[in-house]
Amino acid sequence: MSDRAQHHYYVPQPSHWMIFGSAGLLCMATGAAAWLNDWEPGRYIVFAGLAILAFMMARWFGDVVRESEGGKYGRWEDVSFRWGMSWFIFSEVMFFGAFFGALYYARLIAVPDLGSIDSKLLWPDFAAQWPSAGPNFKDPFTPMAAWGIPAINTLLLLSSGVTVTVAHWALKEGKRTQLALFMFFTVALGATFLCFQAYEYGHAYSDLNLKLSTGVYGSTFFMLT
């Protein structure tokens, strides 16, 4: 590794890939909104956004790999990458912690309180049981079962964690063939997970009448999954 990489922080040239990423995310967001409102071209806009995002990630990651293998990264860049990943993991923990906290509050505190004697004057017909969409919600729905697709998706997530760990070990050992193989397995498991997740959401909307508008149960279900 060069002395420059050891003692100077590498600042890359301005990149245009974030413009591609922003365009892809914009297409996905607008397409999803249109799709949910029964506008047929919305689904194609979503797929176009996914394609743009995949192209951007492949090219941008390729630039980073070439910079790393070219000896442009040193100790300070390594520290930056580790801190960046640490903050990302921390943000994910706080994100899901907030939603699990909301689920805990709704299930164990809010719903029993709404079914108490003091609340019977306001909502006399409300049954304090979970799952519940909340008082005055008349549209019937069917809760998502724990087994079936949710169990399969959990297994896929755990399996992808194993394969990416093996890929990381292969990277540290310099075994590029094994690295590529297990990274492929990881990506394949992730893609399979997304397909099952899309099917699960479609099943929830069309067959179970479970939507984002289905009170507290629907909103927490979709945000946590």
Rank of each mutant, 00 (worst) to 15 (best):
D78N: 09
V65T: 13
G190S: 15
F182P: 00
A102V: 08
N136F: 10
F137A: 02
W35P: 00
S213I: 12
V93K: 06
E40C: 06
A204T: 02
S119Y: 04
D113A: 07
T30N: 10
G71N: 09
I19K: 12
S160E: 04
M1G: 11
D118V: 07
K172P: 02
T192W: 06
G218D: 01
S119C: 05
F141S: 01
G134K: 05
M183I: 15
Y73K: 06
L26N: 10
L121Q: 09
L103F: 12
M57N: 09
L189C: 04
R43Y: 08
V65K: 11
G218I: 01
M56R: 08
T165C: 03
Y104M: 10
D3E: 14
K175E: 13
L179F: 13
V162Y: 01
D207G: 07
L121P: 02
A29I: 15
M28S: 09
F222S: 03
F185N: 01
Y199T: 04
V93N: 06
A32F: 04
V111F: 01
Y105K: 13
A180N: 15
G174K: 15
G215T: 07
S86Y: 06
M56D: 03
D118C: 03
A188P: 11
M1K: 06
F20R: 06
G101Q: 08
Q6S: 10
I19T: 14
R82C: 10
T214D: 08
A146W: 00
I19S: 12
V46T: 14
N136T: 12
V164N: 02
M57G: 07
Y73V: 05
A54H: 08
L26G: 08
